[in-house]
Amino acid sequence: MAKKILIVDDDPDVRLFNSTVVEENGYTALTAENGEEGYKIIKEEKPDLLILDVLMPRQSGLRLYRNLKTEKAFKDMPIILLSGIARRTFLRSQNALTEFEGEEVPEPKTYLEKPVEPAELAQAIKDALNG
């Protein structure tokens, strides 16, 4: 059975682009428009990999990443951050939330800054799924 990859991004064009790359590489694509919707799908579908945007309505990727990394059931789920926000800005923001809220989260293993080429995303997916 094909591995399931959840794409969480509020931009429909990005969701379409990412889904196409995912499906062309033989995986099943699931999609969500924000962190809140994404978390529901994660609980129901338990995807093998998450491709996550940062700046989104209702619940940000900053928050969903934080929640998943501090939740026992999902802390080992591979995540690719794919965002227009620079990696250093994401890390600084996570450090600030750690300062304010107390719980530390690990740095993301894979962080891609938009725009990304299909081949680069496909390789990142392959690497993330292979651990």
């Binding site: 940062v54 619940q59 940000s60 900053l62 600084r92 923001s93």
Partner: peptide, 16 residues
């Protein structure tokens, strides 16, 4: 929570 997330992201972005 969303307010705080956006606040830290935008301030970090301006500083970067």
């Amino acid at each position: 929570q969303l307010y705080l997330d956006y606040l830290v992201l935008f301030i970090a972005e301006i500083a970067d």
